[in-house]
């Protein structure tokens, strides 16, 4: 475990905590895309299939449980919680996220390390995670003013994969035959998708104005 990997995991965990705080504290999920949350739940469920079979470390197992349970809890909250569900911008969150699932599945069937259930699911989860933020970014562009917690949530979510890329670079130079081209490419695409968000997030921070993404 290197410092970049740990920083990435902590940033990812923090983004989940910020989202939970926003929903719990404001009892509202306005500005949050349910579709992105559903995609993340699918990402974790298909990536952590080895949760019950391979024990790598307590940290690894605990973090997997945290990510799976928090993503499912958020989806449940947005769908079924009597108060929160009414604040969901249903008519704004219209991204056809099934196309993202289908596309990732096709990619995983074409490009994987080994043609086994686990490896295809793992590749699927990597590809899906790269594009899972799209419904959320589209929703941000549509919702006029983005509240701070939502902006911070997306910011930390984007930053975590950037730390992972540094982690892969570090591992590439410190470990033999460490070649992970699937997460490499998907991670670059994923972080790239946040590029314009990071730019407008930086502007809103520098000019001390409300975050607003151009339509």
């Amino acid at each position: 475990m290197n410092v970049f990997r740990f920083a990435g995991d902590m940033t990812h965990l923090f983004s989940v905590l910020v989202l939970l705080l926003k929903i719990y504290a404001t009892k509202s999920c306005s500005g949050i895309s349910l579709k992105t949350q559903e995609l993340y739940a699918l990402v974790f469920l298909t990536r952590y299939l080895d949760l019950l079979t391979d024990f790598i470390s307590l940290y690894n197992t605990v973090m997997k449980l945290v990510f799976i349970s928090s993503s499912l809890a958020i989806v449940w909250c947005m769908r079924a919680h009597p108060v929160v569900r009414r604040t969901y911008d249903k008519d704004q969150d219209t991204f056809r996220h099934y196309t993202l699932v289908a596309g990732s599945l096709v990619l995983a069937l074409l490009f994987h390390d080994r043609f086994t259930i686990r490896e295809v699911c793992w590749a699927f989860s990597i590809y899906l995670e790269a594009v899972a933020i799209l419904p959320q970014l589209v929703l941000l562009q549509r919702s006029r003013n983005v509240d701070n917690l939502t902006g911070q949530y997306v910011f930390f979510l984007g930053a975590y994969r950037a730390f992972y890329i540094l982690n892969w670079i570090y591992r590439y130079f410190t470990e033999q035959h460490f070649s992970r081209w699937i997460p490499w490419i998907a991670g670059l695409v994923q972080t790239g998708l946040y590029a314009d968000f990071f730019y407008y997030y930086y502007l809103s921070w520098k000019n001390n104005v409300k975050l607003q993404l151009p339509a």
């Binding site: 990997r5 990812h12 080895d50 391979d54 790598i56 690894n60 793992w122 982690n167 035959h177 992970r180």
Partner: peptide, 10 residues
């Protein structure tokens, strides 16, 4: 690389 060490990341 064994499967486990390959999937040691989150």
């Amino acid at each position: 690389l064994s499967a486990v060490t390959k999937h040691d990341e989150l």
